[in-house]
Design a protein around this nucleic acid. Structure first.
Lengths: 200, 200
DNA sequence: TCCTTAACTGTATATAATTACAGTTACTTG
DNA sequence: CAAGTAACTGTAATTATATACAGTTAAGGA
């Protein structure tokens, strides 16, 4: 989509709101009334401009023939985190690969983001490579929960067990080792707990 | 919403589809063309009837002023099929446990419904008891695909292999047996292919 | 300075769309 | 059996809507 002028952005926003309120696209005259135009042609040329820039589609000869060309980000979904660069916070905008059309409230507690699984270390918990794990962003985790943790700039999904200052991050696959952490010697960041999974 | 006649249901379904296809509600004339009416008044009276029964709302004097009065859950979610009673088609309304707020287009090809997994026979494919399998409703399946099949009134999720009239439904768990079917002797209904999975 | 573009005014017209009115036919229900 | 209702045909009129054409003004770049 080409860049819009301020006025065009304003008009696009109004069209979106109109469609939410009324369930149908507006007419040229409705746009005139809302924007204070005294000529229907003002509305017409604005719509043509929005079409030219790819923000909407116009259907010829059809009343209210305005179709929104949606920005996928707008669709209220969950951000999907792909590869996480070393030393960066997991929720940095740079890591957002896309937005997936999933209701955060589908999970309990609510999901804050999705994380793409790398590797087979949690295979026996039914978590395969490429799956999207729904994560609730919290520091409060309990023994036995599957957590997203960052250790030495590496993000990993494991089962969490803690006794005092000793933490075990256990895989669910005998081919992988248990990771042992001494909290006094190593920094362990909890990025959240797994609340669900999506495979597409 | 009051009960609709068959014809009215047909018309309501068509209106829904039209709105999905075009992004705007239909005109009376479009409804005439689709239903084969020769009088616009046939469309008008049908719309009035649908309004009277609470299925739609009509906005006076406004072109395409048709608003769907929908169950919001139904609007954008996928039906979740729980236990399937013996001898009944899987998509019967009685089997719909709830509607989950998941975009059908999240999966490729598009998902038509979700099915709750019973048993651990597909454990090694990362499909656990209680998971929701997203299903694309189709008869066209290929060897190696994970399918939803009905055999002797029992619905099952297995990997599908066919050679001529012999079909094997293979589990992904050594504790479960391979199911062999001779298509000439036993009726096998394919209810669709797995296109994804959700764990909540 | 000329040219292009955004952002409009103002008028006009064809056509898209709603909607009223007058009927018909078939089926169901008290 | 009368009355109501669903499901239509057919015509007409009014209003809603899209859209062409002819202008104006202001800003910005070549």
């Amino acid at each position: 989509m080409q860049e819009l002028t301020l006025r065009q952005q304003e008009i696009l926003l109004w069209i979106r709101q109109y469609m939410v309120d009324h369930g149908i696209p507006p007419t040229r005259l409705a746009l005139c009334a809302a924007m204070g135009f005294r000529s229907p042609n003002a509305a017409e040329t604005h719509l043509r401009a929005l079409e030219r820039k790819g923000a909407i589609e116009l259907v010829q000869g059809v009343s209210r023939g305005i179709r929104l060309v949606e920005d996928p980000k707008e669709a209220s979904g969950l951000p999907l985190i792909g590869k996480v660069a070393a030393g960066q916070p997991i929720l940095a905008v740079a890591h957002i690969e896309s937005y997936e059309p999933v209701d955060p409230g589908l999970f309990q507690p609510v999901a804050h983001y999705l994380l793409r699984v790398q590797g087979e270390s949690m295979r026996n918990a039914g978590i395969l490579e490429g799956d999207l794990v729904a994560v609730h962003h919290t520091l409060i985790v309990q023994n036995g929960q599957i957590v997203v943790a960052r250790l030495e700039d590496e993000v990993t999904i494991k089962r969490f067990y803690r006794q005092g200052e000793r933490v075990e991050l256990r895989p669910e696959n005998p081919d992988f080792p248990v990771i042992e952490v001494n909290l006094k010697k190593q920094a362990l960041h909890i990025e959240g707990v797994m609340v669900g999974l999506i495979r597409t």
